[in-house]
Amino acid sequence: MSGISIVLVVIVAFLAGMEGILDEFQFHQPLVACTLIGIVTGQLPACLILGGSLQMIALGWANIGAAVAPDAALAAVASAIILVKGGQGAAGAQTAIAVAIPLAVAGLFLTMVVRTISVAIVHQMDAAAEKGNFKMIEVWQIAAICLQGLRIAIPAAALCVIPAETVSNFLNSMPAWLTDGMSIGGGMVVAVGYAMVINMMATPEVWPFFAIGFCLAALSELTLIALGAIALAMALIYLKLSEGAAAGSAAGAGTGDPLGDILDDYE
């Protein structure tokens, strides 16, 4: 990688790290982070495919309660750098993902460190508030965000500096049974993210919708957009019907958009 590429990769990593905590713009999602790294390193096609594959695995990764998911930001950034340096193109995507996921797990430790340091930072904010010092509160807030950025940027920089031969030798030295096996494992790992989400949402009332979705998905003619439209339609129908059942006369006057009607009542 050229010097400029490395600088740009580290900037992308910094953005991903910030977003890993903010969760607003979604720069930390593999789909976005891997694509950006692909652009700055000139290996867009391979990184695009990598981002898509990793996104599928990370779809359900969200920290809920005690269950902590691997760090999507580090997984995305690390796998893209490994893919670029390994020089295998899109073919290396599965291996890069398999190597990056353990790193993403290790990344959780870094998140914990920064969140602990932030305790000290908010105490500085308390002190600034005591003096009515707006500027200092803002400075500390920004400092805390930058720390989160560095959390990913520093490991990314380290990965960039490791010579490309070391990375590709390492990847090439892995026997086929191991890389193929890891690809197969990667195909199954997707289920974990889905299971986390289902556990959060499942009630006896909504399980039938899962069954319908599962069966309709076997029809490969239906695109995801079509499936989404069916799901939305069913949700609206269900809400409308259960509202009618619950409140008899209250239903019927609406415009067909129950949410909109309620919001309109406030105008």
Binding site: M201, V206, F210, F214, C215, I230, L239
Partner: peptide, 19 residues
Amino acid sequence: KGASILGMFILGALVERWV
């Protein structure tokens, strides 16, 4: 509730297609 319905449906589809 609407979101859960939407989400469960799509999850059913994703399990079939992507695992």
